[in-house]
Nucleic acid binder design. Structure first.
Ligand SMILES: [Mn+2]
Ligand SMILES: [Mn+2]
Ligand SMILES: [Mn+2]
Ligand SMILES: [Mn+2]
Lengths: 217, 217
DNA sequence: CATCACGTTTCGTTATGCCTAAAATATATA
DNA sequence: TATATATTTTAGGCATAACGAAACGTGATG
């Protein structure tokens, strides 16, 4: 069984080996705020469980399984963090700390469902390796709301990952992957676009229109 | 420090002594799916920390502090369970199991904020002892967005818990406790209300207006 | 009142996860 | 190459939380 502590070690190694190479005992110890002796001990155990490749004195790296596990936990962390900040209005620092505990407890399926509500915000900003295999936005449509005409319907595919602040705003307005939208644009002046999301109506500033990728019907 | 395991024992004792009297070692063991030996051991520790009154061979009951703690955890359990079912659409059984882990990790302040979103109705209907002195929504404002006039500003206090689907929608639109809103209502026809949330504009159907409780400035 | 059965506690052991101090090994410097 | 320094591992301990087996209390029965 992979406990919370083990998971934190996996995450730590994943971060330290992001750019390639191995993680060294001392670095892990420092990151984890734990003695080097404790790290050695833990590496032995993780190696036994085939979550890391470990050679004495040489450093450690994640196995395929370890990597998969680390990515999943990191994703849960980001999702919970987003949830705490966007929905519960927690401050960033507190949110990070609490997410660091929740990440070990949130089930895969709950994470998946959470993702449908709050989307995958930061996850795709500058899409790093921690993202592949989970985040699938790359391969999707390049059409945006800007290309839609009055009366057009579409389903939101994903959001342009560029500005966290703007993404946050879009999400809080209900622009979340999977949602069906219709461009109504029935305002009698050249102002913001008006869209239906499900059966509610939202006004969207025009310069946000190309941040929202859509699948046309 | 009160660990997750200790908390589960406190909850167990709280349930077993609901109707008065003491909890017996064997009953706790059965409930916790643990050996009686483990229970005795734990009771000794909880007694040391003044969370239970414990007399060998005689049974155990919660102290004031233990009771307070047990109630708080049970509340977090219910809140998470409800969140999982109402918002994430998890089935009851799974939700219970997951809540049983999340209850030990959710912070007081996150619980409080969650309560304002999904909180009250069932939780406090027939307000049993597990609830008293904790749930505070009763004392909150009864004003809703429906009572606001054009130009009025307010802060969202909590949401009416009645229809999971509607709550989900409100959340995804950005109507979340703590957010500041302004009623603009500048659409030139008697349609949905238009509100500012932060600096974005949202159109809200009128029949949602009385689901959002607000604190006026 | 002695005895017995059942519930409860004690004892010795295990596993996790952490620690410090000491020993081993690797790396840098002379 | 030899020595000094830094890194890492090993050894020995501690706290939590669990177990089974053995010892022990308590209340019920004869
Ligand atoms: Mn974080
Ligand atoms: Mn963590
Ligand atoms: Mn439950
Ligand atoms: Mn629990």
């Amino acid at each position: 069984m992979v406990t919370g502590s083990r998971e934190d070690y996996l995450i730590c190694i994943h971060k330290l080996t992001q750019g390639g190479g191995v993680a060294k005992t001392n670095d892990i110890a420092q990151f984890m705020k734990v003695s080097p002796a404790s790290v050695t001990e833990m590496m032995r155990r993780l190696a036994e469980e085939n979550l890391v490749d470990y050679e004495k004195y040489r450093g450690v790296r994640l196995t395929r399984a370890g990597q998969r596990h680390a990515k999943q936990i990191r994703r849960k962390h980001r999702l919970m963090e987003r949830f705490l900040v966007n929905i519960l209005d927690t401050d960033a620092e507190t949110a990070h700390e609490e997410a660091c505990k929740l990440e070990h407890v949130l089930s895969d399926s709950a994470a998946q469902k959470l993702c449908r509500i709050i989307g995958e915000p930061e996850e795709c900003t500058g899409c790093d390796d921690t993202c592949d295999g989970i985040c699938v936005n790359h391969s999707l449509t390049q059409d945006t709301v800007a290309s839609m005409n009055e009366g057009d319907a579409a389903v939101i595919s994903h959001l342009r990952c560029e500005n966290a602040e703007k993404i946050r705003k879009l999400i809080s307005m209900g622009f979340v992957p999977g949602r069906r939208i219709v461009l109504e644009n029935d305002l009698p002046f050249k102002g913001p676009l008006v869209l239906r999301i499900g059966d509610s109506r939202v006004a969207l500033d025009r310069d946000y229109a190309d941040l929202i990728f859509v699948d046309r019907d």
